[in-house]
């Protein structure tokens, strides 16, 4: 038994290693600073590991990883802070140094995306990753038609935001 567990662990680590880019992208988009990013990375890895035994290989590891990572990012809630009204801190607030090591286009894109809500972020992230409407609809739980309408709106919103930050 321990050998099997070790094999599963090694297999999981190998797969994760190959797709760390997905982890970095999702945690980058859903965080406002390095601390939040680290917390989200931790939670995503934990959820991936916990869900790995139920991964049936009906799809690619990367497809499954997007689903788990996005589900984790969307269901992770902020803690209430005593004496601080957290609602006063907008989601779009972020540490300027956070995206310093990124190219200029990514910095602008990040700034614009940080003004979208969590669901819009998930949809645009999957679009940026070249996922089909079917795949996006499968991840979010909306119909393909609904996704296409939603994407048009989000893209228009994103363009306006990019214009502002350019």
């Amino acid at each position: 038994m321990p050998k099997i567990n070790r094999d599963i662990k090694t297999e999981f680590l190998d797969e994760l290693d190959k797709h760390q880019g997905i982890l970095q992208k999702i945690s980058f988009v859903y965080s406002r600073n390095s601390v939040e990013k680290e917390d989200l990375c931790q939670e995503i890895i934990l959820q991936l590991w916990k869900s790995y035994p139920s991964f049936k290989r009906e799809c690619a590891f990367s497809t499954w990883m997007y689903r788990v990572a996005l589900n984790t990012a969307l269901s992770l809630t902020k803690k209430p802070k005593l004496f601080i009204n957290t609602e006063e801190i907008p989601d779009s607030f972020f540490d300027v140094e956070y995206s310093m090591n990124k190219s200029e286009s990514i910095k602008i894109l990040y700034q614009a995306i940080s003004h979208l809500n969590k669901v819009e972020k998930a949809i645009i992230l999957l679009w940026l990753e070249d996922k089909s409407y079917e795949e996006i609809s499968d991840n979010i739980g909306l119909t393909v038609k609904n996704i296409s309408v939603r994407l048009v709106r989000i893209k228009a919103k994103l363009k306006e935001l990019i214009k502002k930050f350019q």
Binding site: Q20, G21, K25, I45, L46
Partner: peptide, 30 residues
């Protein structure tokens, strides 16, 4: 979109195996 796909830092910032193993043992905050 093209800049997003080409952004190298996403692929360069890798977590070490030791760190991943540590994260796998933590308790969930969800």
């Amino acid at each position: 979109k093209s800049a997003w796909k080409k952004e190298q830092s996403f692929f360069e910032e890798k977590l070490s195996r030791d760190r991943i193993l540590k994260f796998m043992q933590l308790t969930s905050k969800n």
